[in-house]
Design a binder for these strands. Structure first.
Lengths: 234, 234
DNA sequence: CGAACCCTTGATGGCGATCAAACGCCGTGG
DNA sequence: CCACGGCGTTTGATCGCCATCAAGGGTTCG
C-alpha cells in the first residue's frame, strides 16, 4: 500500500509537527506522501545526498549516523512516531547524516519540496517546524556538552535516567536497539559500554540483556551528575 | 545611549534573521530593544535562567559556554554581527548555556516576549528564524561528529581551514579570542592545543601568536580529513 | 621594571580504544 | 529435540591519546 491509510493518520496527525496546522493542508501533505515498509538493516539515505524527503517513522526503529575520517558514529536512535532529518529538508541542503533501519520499519515519505511549499503557506506548520528545530537544537547542545564534559559511564548513567522517564517507567525499561548501537550513540566502543554497565552496577543500576532496572535513582544521579536544567518536553 | 541608533540599524537590518521582514515590524522590534555596552569578562547570563532577551552582538566578542559536572566548556565563539541564544527564546525555556564577553562589546537586547510576539505576526521573520535554527542545528551535528570521530589535532586543522574561508582569506588570518578559549571550544586543554599546533607545523600550518598562515592547504586537508559535505553558508 | 597571566614545553597518569578470546543467545538444520 | 554455527556481548590485556601536574618562556600592563 502506497498512500497513507486512514488507520495511520491519527498517530501522524497527532505529532507536534502536524498537529496544529490546517486540516486541508495536512491532507494535501498526506496525499502527496507515501508510506513504505523497509526491511531491517536497509540504508534509507546517505550523507551527501540531496534531501528529497522528510521522513516520519511510523513503526520500527531507525538509526541516524554520521561518517567522518573513515569511521562512523550513531547520532540518534529514532523511535516511532517521530519525524527526522527536518533540518536538511528546511534548508534544502545535502544530508549530513545517513540513515538505516534497525528493524523492519514503516516510514512515511513526504516529498521535501512539498513540505517546504506547505510550510510557506501554513503559519501553524511553520511555527511547529520552528519549534521542532529549536528543541532539536537544544538537544544537540546537551549532547555536545555531554560528550565534552562527562566520561563514558556518566554518559550512560544519564542516558538511562532519561530513557526511563521518556519511556514511561523510570524504574525499569528495555533498551532500544543493539548495545553496539547504543555504545556508538554514547561515543564509546561496545567493550567499554559493557564495562560502563559494570561500573553502574555499583551505583544502583541492574542490567540483564536489554532489560534495565534502576534500583537506586538517587545513587545513580549522584554518580552521573545530571544536568541541572531538565530536558525539554518532546 | 539606550536605543538603537540610526547608525547601527543597517548592519543589524542586514542580518538574515531580520533582513526580509516587514519594515514596520522590524521598527517595532528595534524600538522595543536597547543597545548596551558591556565591559570584557562580564557574564551576560547564566544557564538555567529564564531567557528574557534575544541577544545580537553588534561589536566585540562573546563566548557561549556550558557547565556540567563542575567543569565548563566553550560551545561557541560569537563574532559580530550575529544573534545568539535564539533557540532558548523561541522555546521560552531556560538557557542551556551561559555567556560572557571576551572583550568590550556592544550588544542589542531584544525582549524575548516581543521577539516571540512579532515572530507570530510576521511570516518572513518566522521563516528566517526557522532557517537560522535549521542551519544552527546542522552546525551542531557537525560539531558533535567532529568531537566523536576526530582527534584533537584534526579538529584544529578543520577549524583553521573553515575559519580561513569564513574570515575571507583562506591563507592567513587572526584567531579570535585567547587560545585557551579556542582550546575549550575544540574540546581540549590549552596544553594540548599548543601541541596540536606543533603537529600541524608538519602539515602546512604556520602560527605566530594569534596569526595563522596556511602554507599548504592540500597537505592540511589530507591530514585533517575535512567533511565531504561543505559547510552551510550563514 | 616587575608582576601577572598566558602560552609553551616536558613528565606522568588515566580513560578509553584496540586486540584477543571466551561466553551466551538464537536460529538453522540434521 | 538436539547439535552446530554465527553473531553480539562480555571479560581480559595492552596501547595510545589526551588530561593533569610541573616548570620555564614571553608578553602586556601597571
Amino acid at each position: 500500500m502506497n498512500f497513507v491509510r486512514i488507520g495511520e493518520k491519527p498517530e501522524i496527525s497527532r505529532l507536534p509537527l502536524f498537529r496544529d496546522m490546517d486540516d486541508g493542508k495536512r491532507e494535501r501533505i498526506f496525499s502527496g506522501s507515501f508510506l513504505q515498509v523497509f526491511p531491517p538493516q536497509l540504508t534509507l539515505f546517505a550523507a551527501g545526498q540531496q534531501s528529497d524527503f522528510l521522513y516520519v517513522l511510523v513503526d520500527g526503529l531507525v538509526e541516524l549516523y554520521a561518517v567522518s575520517a573513515g569511521r562512523e558514529t550513531t547520532m540518534r536512535i529514532v523511535e516511532p512516531v517521530t519525524s527526522f532529518i527536518l533540518a536538511a529538508v528546511v534548508t534544502d541542503m545535502p544530508f549530513l547524516m545517513s540513515a538505516r533501519t534497525l528493524v523492519s520499519s514503516r516510514i512515511l515519505l513526504v516529498p521535501a519540496a512539498l513540505m517546504r511549499e506547505v510550510i510557506k503557506q501554513d503559519a501553524a506548520l511553520m511555527q511547529a517546524t520552528m519549534q521542532e528545530l529549536a528543541v532539536g537544537y537544544r538537544g544537540l547542545v546537551r549532547a555536545l556538552t555531554d560528550m565534552k564534559l562527562r566520561q563514558s559511564a556518566e554518559r550512560l548513567g544519564n542516558y538511562l535516567m532519561e530513557q526511563g522517564v521518556r519511556l514511561g517507567d523510570p524504574e525499569a525499561f528495555e533498551l532500544k536497539g543493539e548495545k553496539r548501537v547504543l555504545a556508538s550513540l554514547l561515543g564509546m566502543t561496545p567493550e567499554n559500554l559493557s564495562r560502563a554497565f559494570g561500573v553502574l552496577r555499583d551505583h544502583g543500576v541492574g542490567v540483564s540483556g536489554s532489560r534495565v532496572t534502576i534500583l537506586d535513582r538517587d545513587r545513580l544521579a549522584r554518580f552521573s551528575r545530571p544536568d541541572p536544567v531538565p530536558p525539554d518536553p518532546i
